[in-house]
Design a protein around this nucleic acid. Structure first.
Length: 422
RNA sequence: GUGGGUGUAGCUCAGUCGGUAGAGCACCGGAUUGUGGUUCCGGUUGUCGCGGGUUCAAUCCCCGUCACUCACCCCA
């Protein structure tokens, strides 16, 4: 094989697609119950959009973007969904049309990282954004929506972490507090964290080194440096979550890798074994300053994104449920033409049908029918043609009957309908 | 970018202390001129990832390389 898929980009074959479609359907159904509506934005955006919104100094922008030049435009395959949605929100002046907007999206994102379990260069995210509401009520409701979604998926082993980063001033104050704390102790930090100390001290809190973790336990907490308004927002969030009975855990050391977050921050962390090291199922937070920084009107926003591959790893494998389709087995040339007409009628009646066109013996077609997962096999041969009937075999029940050809659809409906109401 | 693991049939893998390969599953045909998931018989499928070195001889040993994979970094 000389031509293969690009590293880190995978095919999703038909035998896996059922799980994807189920996941996506549950996502859509859940968020639509909260009033969210889908938005579809381009996969390619101006590079500057991501530089300005995600932050120039983040890893995503610095070294992971798929950027290219086309004529005179600097373009990038989107590494996440929030920036494009914000651009669309601004471009279409949605803020002037309605005070509050609830949008969701679903689709591929691209980051040039080294692939690992649950992490790919083309990966799929589902996310939602809420524009125009600043209060903690919608923060709590969004987290509750995520909890409901995971529950619908049957993912039990998950933890909801919440934190507040405060506003920009708080964030600067906290950054300084961390510098003051870690700089005299930098010798005790891991190599990675020493680098973080210079670049982005907040990320030290995220370190997986046990030694760093122990040190972080003594570091100042951001919750202690929140100003009064930040504090009131955070307390409000927790009170609303309590009222909703949404389980959560406050983690003052929760930080995330994108620069745009302010105040509320949350993350869903899988605790099951399937996930490996990539246990962040999704996360998000408030980004009240982004629209303003993109030269729009100051608009409070909150959003999240979920990694679909990781959710699939965490999901219990659900049994495929199919109402049962029909395998049509014709014996002979005349029967084949009749089989085509029969299958066509079945489809018109909304029943899935496939005709065996390989023209073989019955004792070859029947095993194929069973192995292919068909519920019924309809056999058409000379005898049936002559008598104006078909042989209808229920492969599951090992039963066979011979309804008149004209009554086949009706008979199948009876069998399937009888089960549906049971 | 860093470190580890693995590359043998469509799939899962075995194997050769160095003598150019096997099993199960799958697929195809027959037992059975029209009745299945079982059984029996037979059959097809391989540049042993790629390149080089050592050797009379390399799938096996050595070096390189590529791919996949896991972890780190970062993130979903």
């Amino acid at each position: 094989m000389e031509l293969r898929a690009v590293k880190g980009m995978n095919d999703i074959l038909p035998d896996e697609i059922g799980r994807w479609q189920r996941l996506e359907a549950i996502f859509r159904r859940t968020v639509e119950l909260y009033g969210y509506r889908e938005v579809r934005t381009p996969i390619v955006e101006p590079t500057q959009l991501f530089v300005r919104s995600i932050g120039e100094a983040t890893d995503v922008v610095e070294k992971e973007m798929y950027s290219f030049q086309r004529h005179d435009n600097e373009l990038t395959l989107r590494p996440e969904g929030t920036a494009g949605a914000a651009r669309a929100y601004l471009e279409h002046k949605i803020h002037a049309r309605e005070p509050v907007s609830r949008w969701y999206y679903l689709g591929p994102m691209f980051r040039g990282e080294r692939p690992a379990k649950g992490r790919y260069r083309q990966f799929y995210q589902a996310g939602a954004e809420l524009y125009g509401e600043a209060g903690p009520l919608c923060d709590a409701e969004m987290i509750d929506m995520l909890a409901r979604f995971l529950q619908q998926l049957g993912i039990e082993q998950v933890e909801v972490l919440v934190n507040s980063l405060g506003g920009p001033a708080t964030r600067l104050r906290y950054r300084q507090a961390l510098l003051d704390f870690f700089t005299p102790r930098s010798a005790q930090l891991s190599e990675d964290s020493q680098r973080r100390l210079e670049k982005n001290p907040l990320r030290i809190l995220d370190s997986k080194s046990p030694h760093d973790q122990a040190l972080c336990a003594e570091a100042p907490s951001i919750l202690d440096v929140l100003d009064d308004e930040d504090r009131a927002h955070f307390d409000g969030l927790l009170a609303h979550l309590d009222a909703l009975k949404t389980p959560y855990r406050v983690d003052p050391r929760l930080v995330r890798g994108l620069d745009y977050y302010t105040r509320t921050l949350f993350e869903l962390r899988g605790t099951g074994g399937e996930l490996g090291a990539q246990n962040a199922l999704g996360g998000g937070g408030r980004y009240d300053r982004m629209i303003g920084e993109l030269h729009g009107p100051e608009t409070p926003c909150i959003g999240f994104a979920l990694g679909l591959e990781r959710l699939l790893l965490a999901m219990a494998p659900a049994p495929e449920t199919s109402p049962g389709w029909v395998y049509v087995a014709p014996l002979g040339a005349e029967a084949q033409r009749e089989a085509l007409r029969l299958a066509s009628e079945l489809r018109s009646a909304g029943i899935e049908a496939r005709v065996d066109g390989r023209g073989q013996k019955l004792n070859r077609m029947l095993p194929r029918a069973s192995n292919s997962g068909a519920r019924f096999c309809v056999i058409v041969g000379e005898g049936e043609l002559a008598r104006g009937v078909v042989a209808l075999k229920d492969l599951q029940a090992h039963a066979q009957e011979e309804p008149p050809r004209a009554q086949l659809v009706q008979r199948l409906r009876e069998i399937l309908g009888g089960e549906a109401t049971r």
